[in-house]
């Protein structure tokens, strides 16, 4: 069983092969981590999967459907959602409102219908209820009505997770969710990731915090210079010589 399949995917910027012929598969109900040194092409890979960038070559399949040419905004309703490495919360909206935007695809009122406002309130109440569930799940109650971009950095990352969860994804891509978290928050994040997986959501995780990666991942894909260097379970990866080399530099003997 595969929910997402990345097949020979490449992205070339000018002469730079940011992502070079990468393939891997994601099963439903697993946490797959993508690790690698800075500049290895991890975020570019995310941007390819979520169609922010066009592929230079290769294909991506979601539930056996080729999504290589699907427009980015259609992915959320198909079941793919993500967070961003550089926080991309919406300015001028509160935490609650930011999370409610994640529920956009669950609403039905169109542009003209909204102007007459017959259904706005009932629809908003429903979205607000959903958003509050996410707020309680993640523990953002204290920041609900604060402007999202003014709350602590670590909490902003969690708002991004909550917003992404609002789309009811089948595959959730998280780009460095543990960056800027203290150790207590990291522990909470680990629990949250396992809980999300428990709800039947596949997670693709980019993360530098190896403690988090090794303890929650079912499998790990290692990237270096745009290429896939290795793939395996956390213990396999920890013993892989190639991986150790990439992280520690060339051996000198």
């Amino acid at each position: 069983m595969t929910i997402l399949k990345v097949q020979n995917v490449s992205k070339v910027f000018g002469g730079l092969h940011a992502v070079d012929n990468v393939s891997f598969e994601v099963k439903p109900n697993e946490i797959l981590s993508v690790i690698g040194p800075n500049g290895a092409g991890k975020t570019t890979l995310f941007n390819l999967i979520t169609r922010i960038y066009d592929l230079s070559s290769g294909n991506i399949y979601f539930q056996n459907q080729d999504i290589s040419k699907v427009e980015a905004y259609k992915l959320a309703s198909m079941g793919i959602s993500r967070t961003f490495q550089n926080i991309e919360l919406f300015e001028g909206l509160t935490t609650l409102e930011n999370i409610m935007v994640g529920g956009y695809i669950h609403g039905k009122c169109g542009f003209v219908e909204s102007m007459f406002g017959f259904r706005n309130r009932s629809e908003d109440k429903r979205l607000e209820k959903m958003a509050k569930e996410k707020i309680n799940l993640i523990g953002l109650q204290n920041y609900e009505h604060s402007e999202a971009l003014e709350i602590p950095y670590g909490r902003q990352r969690m708002v991004e997770v909550a917003r992404a969860l609002m789309t009811s994804p089948k595959v959730l891509l998280l780009d460095e969710p543990a960056a800027g978290l203290n150790s207590v928050e990291s522990e909470e994040l680990k629990k949250l990731l396992l809980r999300i997986r428990g709800d039947g959501v596949a997670i693709i995780l980019i993360e530098h915090d190896m403690e988090t990666v090794m303890s929650v991942s079912d499998r790990i894909v290692v990237m270096n210079h745009g290429q896939k260097l290795a793939e395996g379970t956390p213990s396999e990866i920890q013993q892989n010589q190639e991986v150790i080399k990439a992280y520690l530099g060339e051996e000198v003997f």
Binding site: I52, S77, L89, L93, V101, Y104, I105
Partner: peptide, 15 residues
Amino acid sequence: ETLRSSEIAAKSMGI
């Protein structure tokens, strides 16, 4: 309001 600050995040939310 999302258009003003982040179009890519807006698209990722299905807008």
